[in-house]
């Protein structure tokens, strides 16, 4: 199908080619304008690490970084991300080595069913990128938009504290910026 580019005036377009860099890799995909970013990631790109939980902007399972900031990808249209960078859970591991956040969730048993975990870890990675030494309160505030129905959060907080320690100890440890 021919690509309609956004016209200069009057009304808009129902399909659009979007250019999005996901975990450092550039993608160009034509989508319906109503395609949500989470569906774009899961269905157009086949990256199913980002989960759809509540689908109502509550649970945060779908959290990704959009230009470095954690957002709920069920509440962003893919066309809004045109020209931007996205970071997902698939980008945390680098060269076969787990990110300190992933290592923390493993070591501190920061998950039970695992459904919220991709969003939790992405939010944690963004927190640590901005604040390498967060207090427990700051961690709890940062993940307050990510719901876990299994753990009671105690081990999630410990996991993020583990990652913070590990990141501070490891030179060059940084959260992914997607670009």
């Amino acid at each position: 199908m021919a690509v309609e580019t956004a016209p200069a005036t009057t009304t808009g377009t129902r399909r659009m080619k979007v250019h999005v860099t996901v975990n450092g890799q550039a993608h160009e995909v034509e989508v319906e304008t109503r395609t949500l970013l989470v569906h774009f990631l899961r269905e157009n790109l086949g990256m199913t690490g980002t989960h759809i939980g509540c689908d109502t902007t509550n649970c945060g399972a779908c959290t990704v970084l959009l230009n470095g900031r954690p957002v709920k990808s069920c509440t962003v249209f893919a066309v809004q991300a045109d020209g931007m960078s996205v970071a997902t859970v698939e980008g945390l591991e680098k060269d076969g080595k787990l990110d300190p956040v992933q290592e923390g969730f493993h070591e501190e048993h920061g998950l039970q069913c695992g459904f919220c975990t991709p969003g939790m870890m992405i939010t944690a990675a963004a927190l640590l990128a901005a604040n390498p030494d967060p207090s427990e309160l700051q961690i709890r505030q940062a993940i307050s938009g990510n719901l876990c129905r299994c753990t009671g959060y105690v081990n999630i907080v410990k996991s993020i504290q583990y990652a913070a320690r590990k990141t501070r100890e490891t030179a060059g440890g940084k959260a992914p910026d997607g670009g």
């Binding site: 956004a6 016209p7 009304t11 808009g12 377009t13 129902r14 659009m16 319906e32 304008t33 109503r34 949500l36 569906h39 689908d55 109502t56 249209f77 066309v79």
Partner: peptide, 11 residues
């Protein structure tokens, strides 16, 4: 949940 179709324009 999928929204109804719409035209999209970047201002």
């Amino acid at each position: 949940m999928i929204p109804a179709s719409f035209d999209y324009a970047v201002a």
